[in-house]
Structure formats: C-alpha cells, structure tokens
Design a protein around this nucleic acid. Structure first.
Lengths: 226, 226
DNA sequence: GCATTTATTTATGTATGCATTATGGGCTGC
DNA sequence: GCAGCCCATAATGCATACATAAATAAATGC
C-alpha cells in the first residue's frame, strides 16, 4: 500500500499527463478555456516537449483539442455530449453485465460489487453525496472489469472521466439516488445467478434512466460543463 | 472531388500518422514486429519528433505499443482480441441502428446504405471479395454515421481499423457472405420504418453471427494477425 | 477616414543535441 | 567452465534552438 521507499521517478510526460488531468478535473483549467503550450510548460516546470506529448494523449482521450496558434482548448460538454457519453456507457456496461453473468463468478469474486452497493446504501443515509459518487464509480468500474473486455474497459474509463468533470455540478442538482441501488442489487443478483439477459437488460434500463436524469438537469439549467 | 490544385502541405506528424498506419495495414510493419524510433524516422525522412508524436497517437488507438528501449511493437491480434473488438462493435453499431431508426430519415438520407447493400449484392455475384469488403465497410460506417453519436463513430472507426488488419486473411477463409445481405436489408427496412427495436436487434444478431464466424476461423487456424 | 497591404510579433512544428538509463557483452574471479 | 560484475553502447526522454506561418499591428494609399 505504501509507495516504494523513494518516490518513483516518473517521466516528465507521464507527470504532465497526470497533472494536466488533475488540473482539468479540479476546474483549474476550466472547460472552454484556452492555454498556450508555453504557459502550461512553465506551470509544470518542464519544457514544451513532454507537455506536447501529454496534450496529444489527452486529445486522443477527448478532454481537449489542439488548435494551432489558438492554444489547447479544454473541451466543454454540452447536454448533447453528455447524452452521447451516457449512450456509449450504457451499451458497453450492459455488455459487461451480460458477460459477467456468463462467467459464472463466485460470490467471492463479486465481493467488490457487493461492497460498493453497501457503501452506496450507507452513503445515502448520510447523506454523503461525495461518498455515494465514489461508491457508484467503484460499482460501475468493477462491473466493467468483471465483464472482461479490456477494450470496453478502456473506453468506459475514458468516458467516465468525462462524466466526472460534470459530477461536481450534477451531483448537487439531481434528486437523491435512493432508487438507484435497487437496480444495482438486481444486476448483482442476475450476475451471481448467471442470468445474462436479466443482467444486461436491468443494467441497460438503469443506465438509460440515469442518462435521462442527468441530461434533463443539464438541459434545464442550460449548462455546459466542466 | 479533385484535390486542391497544389497538394495540401500536411504537417510531418500528420504524414507520419498516415504513413505509419498504411505501413501497418499493408503488412510492411507486421504484427509483433519491433521498430526503433530512429529507423522509422529514417524511413519517413523526417526527424524523431513528429514520428514520436504519431506513435503516441497510434498507441492511443491501440495499434502499437511503445516499449522503452525495445522499440515500438506493432500489436498482434489474438482471437480473444478480435472477440473483444467485435463485441464492442456489436454494441455500438446496434445503438447506431436504433438511433438511426428513431431519427426518421427519409429514403433520400438512407441512399448511402441502400447503395452499399446493392454493391454488396453485385460483388457477391462476381464474386469479388475485395469489393464486397469495401461495400460492407461502407454500410457499417454509414450506419454509425446515421446513428449520430460522434463518440460512437470515433470508437467504431478505431475498432474497424483493427478488424481491417485481419481482413486480408479472414476474407479468404470465411464462407462467401451470401446470407449477410438479407440482414443488411432488414436493418435498412427497420430504420426506414422507424422500428427501433427491430433495427437494433436485427443488427445485433447480425454482428454476433459475424463475430462467431471470424473468431472461429482465427481460432481454428491458430492465427494471430496483422 | 477607411480599406488594403505590409511588417512584426509570436505560437507552433520540427530538428538537433545531450543526458540518462537499460541492455548486452566481455571480463574477472572462483 | 560458470557466475556475477562492470563497462560500453545505444535508444529514449527531454531541452533547446530555429524556421514557418498565422494573427495583429502599423502604415500607406486612395
């Protein structure tokens, strides 16, 4: 659990990648803002080269866009963007639920899911929205991991990052997700019982519902996000 | 249709990206092979910088992997990889089919699909497998475009590229896709009639079937691909 | 005074050079 | 003869320097 004795000497481009991501998620680089390579390099105390490499990778992940001579733009998320993202998440997570059910996992193997569900229950009673969001993330991430499709995992990770950018805001505006955990339990049950179609369709319905809630909120408040 | 009078002066990194892609697809950089940045730069007649940038992008697209001091490895595709890819394609294309059906496109808007289907019919009579593959690509690409989800489009493009690497081989080993076009027509009809669930499920079944055929071939021949 | 053209500035794209570090080979000692 | 260590080599990661092209400011002509 503890890091290696001396902190690992991670490469500059890796550090740039991580730090830029954090700066974006923390809102320090707000959606829609532009930033010159030189400025970013200065802030990260390194040369433009590793910063450029990080920017290229982040562009591939859809977090920003390089615009020659305009600087890199942190991409805003419109309600339509969010709808797209949720649709992709819906499909790939449903696939994962189906595949997980087909795997025949033991209760032991599913303990991560169960734990996340319990944590969500607990967080709702608080209510502690941050804790709920973290547990919800864990549930979805674990579900996709159990699905066993690494490409789907990578895509879901990417898209989840984008959702995360909007989370700070949507979390406070959406109704308390009290019903949500009933869905989660149903998915969990179906996976444990190896019922592929129930796992798939239940999760699918769950995600479509979530999409509706989030997109409605964004649209109603005419919000574009970080 | 004609390109601009003088050929567009694309940047070196763009050129590196395109040319490396072509070199991979053409099998000039075979799956599993390793290549030093310096060698590639030499072949492309440019410095390492733009080559590195292209490599970074291609790594993000899953075509290769940077391995410090070992060179970049062109990633092989195992039957399991292909199964993963087909599963993702199945989900996202089915989503596209459903959304396309929901859009209420006119026959005019669907002419691209219809044309691709006709071309496939024609190619099968040849039989001209290359022409069939091109038309099949067009059908799937157009379907996803009609779905309107740009993120799904980007992902499908990426995954289709990977399938394309195996195409040269699978195409000659698989049975003639004579039944395939019946599915395509059914999907087309459902989209035109706005029947979301038929469009979705028909395409889904179509893709799952295709997956089975391809994966079986790869497994039977113990093939890893380019 | 306005529009058009020209000059200047400046961000990016690319090349080059250097420091670091891993890898392979050779050498030494047992 | 084998194992382990050390050194040489070379590939990468990064910094820096420079050329190019775009955007802005300036200037000139009408």
């Amino acid at each position: 659990m503890a890091s290696k004795q001396t902190d690992k000497p991670v490469s500059s481009s890796q550090r740039a990648l991580m730090e830029l991501r954090e700066m974006i998620f923390a809102g320090y680089l707000p959606a829609g803002s532009d930033h010159l390579e030189t400025e970013l390099a200065e802030q990260l105390k390194m040369s433009r080269t590793p910063v450029r490499e990080a920017i290229l990778m982040l562009e591939g992940q859809g977090l920003l866009q390089m615009r020659p001579r305009k600087g890199v733009r942190i991409l805003p998320l419109s309600p339509e963007d969010m709808a797209e993202i949720y649709d992709v998440l819906t499909e790939l997570e449903s696939l994962a639920a189906e595949n997980a059910a087909a795997f025949g996992y033991s209760a032991q193997n599913l303990s991560g899911l169960a734990q996340a569900i319990d944590d969500m229950d607990h967080a709702i009673k608080g209510p502690d929205l941050q804790a709920w969001a973290r547990a919800d993330n864990r549930f979805h991430k674990e579900l996709v991991r159990l699905g066993g499709n690494r490409r789907a995992q990578a895509i879901v990770d990417m898209m989840s990052d984008q959702v995360r950018r909007a989370r700070a805001t949507t979390l406070t505006l959406r109704p308390l997700p009290t019903k949500s955990n009933a869905d989660h339990r149903k998915v969990y049950q179906a996976i444990k019982e190896g019922d592929r179609s129930v796992a798939r369709e239940t999760h699918r319905a769950h995600r479509r519902h979530a999409k509706q809630i989030i997109v409605d909120i964004l649209a109603k408040h005419s919000l574009r996000f970080v």
